[in-house]
Amino acid sequence: MMKKLKHMILSFLGLMLIWVLLTSWDLQEIYAGLIVSALIVLLSLGMEPVLGDVKLTPKALVFGLWYIFVFLKELLVSNLDVARRVVNPKLPIKPGIVKVKTTLHSNIGKTILANSITLTPGTLTVDIKDEYLYIHWIEIKHDDLEGATKDIVQKFEKYLEVIFG
């Protein structure tokens, strides 16, 4: 029940934020936004409360903001890395699909982890089964599950664990 309430409040605030960014600080428009956001939250009551797993402790908020910077840095590095491989005439790739393990439990945590992995250096999530992620790696550096997990997953996991659990 707590989870559901948290999900409702968070999605209402998120919708309201998007509304304000899309329109303006006009009082009438804000009223309209309040009504529409509340309606959407009520209509989606039957859905899975995915946002209920978000933790709202101060530590989680700090880690959440910090995670954005970590993510942007990885995004930049990954682009330069892939660009380097693309323009190199020898095309230095050694691709394959490896299996890694995550310790995250919540669905939203896993979703964000998989998305982050897809957008970062040379890795692309192909499939998720329970706690295992199958990842296409453009240059395999470790052959075993532990090494690959350490290289790909753990830099994000330590933040996501605090934020989503």
Binding site: P95, G122, L124
Partner: peptide
């Protein structure tokens, strides 16, 4: 776009496609 042309299979193409 260059990566899409040069990579050998669909997964590697997607690597170039998504990130860039």
């Amino acid at each position: 776009a260059l990566g899409l042309l040069r990579m050998p299979d669909i997964f590697n193409r997607m690597q170039a496609g998504t990130k860039a």
